[in-house]
């Protein structure tokens, strides 16, 4: 085990005790939602932060999986596990079909291609009323149940969501720290140089696009069986933009950044509710300020804070040492 896994283990331990420290169940709900966004942001960061390929349509994969399992389990009475499996399969299959032509586009053209795809899917959610329930949404989706065990309480669901988030984080971390992770970062800076070294750039881009869509699909399935209701507005262009913002604000090419970005942008609106009406203004202003003053994102900001705290501790330790050293000697 190395430092990276130790960090994740510490985080998992902290996540495990948090529910016992919360003043009320309201925060549990917010934490579950931020866990879902963590899964999405970590997946999107693999695509954007590491491989440098933009997607402004990730909400579509989130929604495709949520709707698929919602329709199959809610409307057609499939078992939940089968609905989720179908949701993941459909979402990733669509991602593959989209990736092949779309990833030939570059930069802002790729952003537009994925944006267009996201909007098309969003319109289908709205218009295919017989299937999706249209703008008013789809109700009657069952709670998550596995082998007869129903996860009906928020606390149980918290562990399901964060368990999945931590597992997917671990997999992402293993990918990043491998020859594939290096190849993706190489593609980010110079596709030319990467291909000279034997990296099949198009294949790798497709792989990471589909993988990040899979992450979004896991988030979508977990969302559907938590809220038990899905409606198009959850999977709109605004959600795709929010995900990109989480990745960039958290820190490009930083998995911890994705976690921080997801937590921060889920909690911020909740905190701002107190100043109703003005919340949106303050939200916008904080977003702008963060981007202006933390060029490396929240991850780098946290790292700097940590560094400052550590050096402060060291200095305090050094000041205290002569006396302590004397007594030990």
């Amino acid at each position: 085990m190395d430092g990276h896994n130790a960090g994740l283990l510490a985080f998992a331990a902290a996540a495990a005790v948090v529910p016992f420290l919360l003043p009320n169940d309201y925060y549990l709900t917010v934490l579950i939602v931020s866990g879902l966004y963590t899964i999405l942001a970590v997946g999107l960061n693999l695509l954007m932060g590491y491989a440098g390929q933009a997607s402004l349509g990730h909400a579509a994969f989130y929604g495709l999986s949520a709707y698929t399992t919602g329709i199959l389990t809610g409307t057609h009475g499939w078992p939940v596990w089968a609905g989720i499996a179908a949701g993941l399969a459909l979402s990733t299959a669509v991602a593959y079909l989209i990736a092949v032509p779309t990833l030939k586009l570059r930069g802002n053209y790729l952003a537009m291609g994925t944006l267009g795809f996201g909007i098309i899917v969003y319109i289908v959610f709205n218009e295919a009323t017989e299937l999706t329930g249209g703008p008013s949404g789809l109700t009657g989706i069952p709670k998550l149940n596995v082998a007869g065990k129903v996860f009906s309480s928020d606390r149980e669901y918290y562990y399901v969501v964060w368990g999945a988030a931590i597992l997917l984080f671990l997999l992402a971390q293993n990918l990043v720290r491998s020859r594939m992770g290096r190849a993706l970062r190489a593609i980010h800076t110079s596709e030319t140089a990467a291909s000279v070294l034997g990296v099949d750039t198009q294949r790798y881009k497709i792989f990471v696009f589909v993988l990040s869509a899979f992450y979004a699909a896991v988030g979508g399935a977990l969302y559907a069986h938590y809220v038990t209701f899905v409606s198009p507005s959850t999977f709109s262009f605004g959600t795709s933009v929010l995900l990109v913002t989480m990745v960039v604000l958290g820190g490009m090419a930083s998995l911890w950044g994705a976690v921080l970005g997801a937590l921060f942008l889920t909690f911020l609106p909740e905190w701002l509710r107190a100043i109703e009406n003005f919340d949106i203004l303050v939200y916008g202003a904080i977003l702008i300020a963060c981007m202006m003053f933390l060029p490396g994102g929240l991850a780098e900001g946290a790292e700097r804070l940590w560094g400052a705290a550590a050096s402060l501790l060291r200095r305090a330790g050094a000041a205290g040492r002569p006396a302590g050293g004397g007594s030990a000697g």
Binding site: V248, M252, G284, L287, M291
Partner: peptide, 14 residues
């Protein structure tokens, strides 16, 4: 440019 793009997202929200 990406940093500034996110800033313009903040501006649009404002």
């Amino acid at each position: 440019p990406l940093t500034m793009i996110i800033i313009t997202i903040g501006v649009s929200i404002l």
